[in-house]
Each structure stands twice: as structure tokens, then as C-alpha cells.
Simulated assay, not measured.
Amino acid sequence: MKILIRLLFILAGALALSFLVAKVVLVPIGQWYEMNRAQSESDLSRAFVIALAVQALCVVVGGWLGDRGFRTWRQKQLDRQQRM
């Protein structure tokens, strides 16, 4: 059961950070770049690859943050059990 909860924390962290970065950072920058700076399809595909790399990095960092959140949550549970 503990492994399932840990996986859920990791998945939630990865999805949350990835979604947040996509909506708040990547989409507005991508739209601005497409309208103001991109001169060819090559520029757009290069920007798309960079956005995918940023998304992949956010998934990894979000998973790490989810794991840290699980460890913190688990430690608080253990502390409560020891007090009783």
C-alpha cells in the first residue's frame, strides 16, 4: 500500500508541475514567439523541441518533488504514531 501511495505522490507532483509550467510559461511564450519572432517552419519546430525538453525536465523535477512530499508526509505520520 505504501508503494502505491508513493507512486501517486510522484505522479501527482510530475503532472502538477508539468501542467503548471505548460499553462503559465510555455503556452504564452510559444504564442508570442510564433507571432513575433518565427520566420519559418524550422524556427517553429526548433521551439517545439525546446518546449518538449522543458516539459520532460518538469516531469522529472515534479516527480522528485512528489517523492519529497511523500517522505515528508510519511515522516509526519511516523512522528504522530510515536507520540501516542
Results as ranks from 00 to 15, higher is better:
residue 1 M to W: 10
residue 2 K to C: 07
residue 3 I to Y: 15
residue 3 I to T: 15
residue 4 L to S: 14
residue 4 L to M: 14
residue 5 I to Y: 11
residue 5 I to F: 13
residue 6 R to A: 11
residue 7 L to Y: 12
residue 7 L to Q: 12
residue 8 L to D: 13
residue 9 F to Y: 06
residue 10 I to A: 03
residue 11 L to P: 00
residue 11 L to S: 05
residue 12 A to F: 13
residue 13 G to V: 00
residue 13 G to K: 01
residue 14 A to F: 04
residue 15 L to H: 00
residue 16 A to S: 09
residue 16 A to M: 06
residue 17 L to N: 02
residue 17 L to D: 01
residue 18 S to M: 08
residue 18 S to F: 08
residue 20 L to S: 09
residue 20 L to Y: 05
residue 21 V to S: 02
residue 22 A to I: 08
residue 22 A to C: 10
residue 22 A to L: 13
residue 23 K to V: 07
residue 23 K to W: 10
residue 24 V to Q: 04
residue 25 V to F: 11
residue 25 V to C: 09
residue 25 V to D: 00
residue 26 L to D: 00
residue 28 P to Q: 03
residue 28 P to K: 01
residue 28 P to T: 02
residue 28 P to Y: 03
residue 28 P to I: 03
residue 28 P to L: 02
residue 28 P to D: 03
residue 31 Q to W: 08
residue 31 Q to V: 11
residue 32 W to Q: 10
residue 32 W to S: 13
residue 32 W to C: 10
residue 32 W to Y: 13
residue 32 W to I: 10
residue 32 W to T: 12
residue 34 E to S: 14
residue 34 E to D: 14
residue 34 E to L: 14
residue 35 M to W: 10
residue 35 M to C: 12
residue 35 M to S: 14
residue 35 M to H: 14
residue 36 N to R: 11
residue 38 A to S: 05
residue 38 A to K: 02
residue 38 A to C: 06
residue 39 Q to E: 10
residue 40 S to N: 05
residue 40 S to Q: 00
residue 40 S to G: 05
residue 40 S to T: 08
residue 41 E to L: 13
residue 41 E to A: 15
residue 42 S to N: 13
residue 42 S to M: 13
residue 43 D to A: 11
residue 45 S to Q: 13
residue 46 R to Y: 10
residue 47 A to D: 07
residue 47 A to T: 03
residue 48 F to V: 07
residue 48 F to K: 15
residue 49 V to R: 15
residue 49 V to P: 03
residue 51 A to V: 04
residue 52 L to F: 11
residue 52 L to K: 15
residue 53 A to H: 08
residue 54 V to R: 05
residue 54 V to H: 01
residue 54 V to C: 00
residue 55 Q to D: 06
residue 55 Q to C: 05
residue 57 L to Q: 07
residue 58 C to N: 01
residue 59 V to R: 04
residue 59 V to F: 11
residue 59 V to E: 04
residue 59 V to T: 06
residue 60 V to G: 04
residue 60 V to Q: 01
residue 63 G to K: 00
residue 63 G to Y: 02
residue 64 W to H: 08
residue 64 W to Q: 08
residue 65 L to Q: 03
residue 65 L to M: 07
residue 65 L to K: 06
residue 65 L to E: 01
residue 66 G to A: 03
residue 66 G to R: 01
residue 68 R to I: 09
residue 69 G to V: 00
residue 69 G to Y: 03
residue 69 G to R: 04
residue 70 F to W: 06
residue 70 F to R: 01
residue 70 F to P: 03
residue 70 F to G: 02
residue 71 R to W: 14
residue 73 W to N: 10
residue 73 W to H: 11
residue 76 K to F: 07
residue 76 K to W: 12
residue 76 K to H: 13
residue 76 K to C: 08
residue 78 L to A: 12
residue 78 L to G: 08
residue 78 L to Y: 06
residue 79 D to W: 09
residue 79 D to V: 07
residue 80 R to Y: 08
residue 80 R to N: 13
residue 80 R to T: 11
residue 81 Q to S: 09
residue 81 Q to K: 11
residue 84 M to R: 09
residue 84 M to K: 10
